[in-house]
Each structure stands twice: as C-alpha cells, then as structure tokens.
Design a binder for these strands. Sequence first.
RNA 1: GACCCCAUCGUCUAGCCUGGUCAGGACACAAGCUUUUCAAGCUUGCAGCGCGGGUUCAAAUCCCGCUGGGGUCGCCA
Length: 323
Amino acid sequence: MVRVRFAPSPTGYLHIGGARTALFNWMYAKAQGGKFILRIEDTDKVRSKQEYLDEIMDSMQWLGLSWDEFYKQSDRFDLYTQYAQKLLDEGKAYKEVREEGGGEAIVLKMPEKVIKIYDLIRDEIVVDTKELKDQVLIKSDGSPTYSFACVIDDALMEISCVIRGEDHISNTPKQIVIYEALGFKPPKFAHLPLILDDERARLSKRAGAVAVTDYRGQGFLPQAVVNYLMLLGWSPGNNQEKVVLDNAIKNFSIKKINKAGAAFSMDKLKWLNGEYIKEMDNAQLSAAVTPFLVKQWGAGCLEGKTLENIVQLYKGRMSTLLD
RNA sequence: GACCCCAUCGUCUAGCCUGGUCAGGACACAAGCUUUUCAAGCUUGCAGCGCGGGUUCAAAUCCCGCUGGGGUCGCCA
C-alpha cells in the first residue's frame, strides 16, 4: 500500500515549492491507488500560527489537492516523549542540561557507521556518520525536534515513500540513524529538485509571487498553476505542455523526475493560464472574473449578459483573470 | 570551508538506463500571413549537449577529472 504525506509547518503561507511537493505526493498517491496524508509539523509553538494553517489548507483545497488523513504533531507530543524515554532506557540517548535557561534536552548518541539512503530519484546516497553530530531529539522545553517527530510519525503512519525537497537530503542520514535506533525500517525517499528563481537562486519573495494565494489573487486558475507546477522537474513525455490531469496521473512516475533544479518562469505560467482561460465558456469565465471586478470597481458594475459579452471580447487576450 | 546533490537552446524539457535517428517539443524572442487596430490564430526563423581526458568503429548518452551552480551544516522546520 502506497502511503505518502505532505508535511508543512504552519510558520508561513504555502509557497510554490511546497505546493509542488504536495502535488507530486498527491499525484503519486493517485497513480498508485494509495493514500495522501496531510501532516502539520507544528512542533515550534512560538512560530506556528493558526492563520498560516488555515491558509495552507485553503491553498491546497484551491489547488484540488485533497487529503485522506490529517494529523497535527502538537497532538502527539506524548508519543515523542515516550520514544525518547525508550532510547534513554536503552542507553542510546542521554540527557543534556542547557547552560542558559536550564532544562534538560534528550540527545541521541551518533553511532559510527556508513549510512546508505535509497533515493528513487538519485539512487544511492552514502554518508559516513563521522560527518554528523549527536542529535537533539527532545528540546529542553520538552518539544521534539523536527527530525525526531518526523521519523516517529513517518514510521507510525507507515509512510512508504517520503517525497520532499532536496533541501532535506542532508538530514536524511540523521533520520536514518533515528529509525535504526528506534528499530523502525526506513521508508524509501525521493528528493525533489528545488524550484529556483530566474537568477537560479532559491525562490524568494523578491522574485514576485511565492505564496499560492498570491497567484490566486493575481488571477491565475488553479488548473493552470497545477499544470505548470507539474512541468517543473517532470514531463509527461510525448511533447505535451497543456496536460490533462488524469493523463498526467496515469503517466506519473517518480523515477522520471529530474535531478536538477528548475527555474520558475512567470511567462510560461501566464501562457498556460491564457490557454485555460480560452477554453472556459463565457458564463464560467464571467463568474471567475466577477470577484476581481467587484474588488476593483465595487459590486454590481457589470453583470449578466453584458459581462458575458465583454468577457467574450476579451477572452483571447487575457492571460490572467486580472487582465 | 566541510559534506552532499546536480549539469541538453535565455527558460521548462524529450532523448541518457538498453551508445549509432539533421538533438525533438514548449515559453520567450524575431519575421511574415490574417486582422480596421490590438490580442488570439497560422507559418517561418533564432538558439543548446559547460570544459578536458578516456572507453568505442561510433558518446548528449558509459567512466574519470575540472569548472560551474545548488543544498545543508540550529535545542527552525
């Protein structure tokens, strides 16, 4: 049974890179007849915010990425503490008193060995634990660290393949050590290439829109965003650009995902969006455009047939609903 | 800096695994057609295997090195 998850932390809005990670997980689950799990990694009590959680779920729904199961790590703190205690009892971890502020953290001893990661996209990645330090499992405030909670949840939720961004490659070996200490079998991994801006640097705010909601606000259709995102690092083959989602799912294969980072192109997204706009009928398009008109000019400025006629006129030249 | 990942047109990519098709498509760009004009549409064009060594009759494709880019080095996730 294929079980995959998307695990955002509600410390910010859902950005376009996260959205693609979610999309690939979702497509893989659909393609394999598996389950797609949304797990909120809200172990950082200070930075996690309800408004971000709402925005993340809202963005995913807008994109059509529905989940089969839902969990929040903040509901599961007892579990993490239990497993940490177990490692303590087995002598695999030790307590460490924090110099400032006090409090005891639980830290995993790093064994000496060579770790092999099996990555579906990159094949085998080998790392010597000599490169790694002992890992904090439970912070001195009692909350689990990212890696510890992540490993326990992935194991307990029986995640078959962890599909996440390439920025997580370097903490994969640390996590494998935790799996082994706990006696869990590590899942498969697939590390997605990162989405870069037009200067090939990591996507950041100055590159324009980053949040999924920004694209929504700028008049992009969810189908276009989804279509564009799946083309970043993957191709359905046979020279298709405008992809029917069901066909894409049918053709989806993790092994065909690219290894190299992909630069985000607003031009191509706009073109795709225009293509989707052209195929909408006037009534649909009028309805889609109305919220933007209301926002700009107030309610009731254009309605019914008049709007449909105008929309008909402009359909060919629009690349976003804002136009 | 250390460790890890990566490398096909400006950009996204097909091709790479199982060497032998003028390296294919798309966005952008340019020109033309069409159009009262602008878009759209159609046609055409421009443009690429980072470099150097191997292996081979033959390398974008396999191997090594270099260069370049990216990622990670938190009691953040």
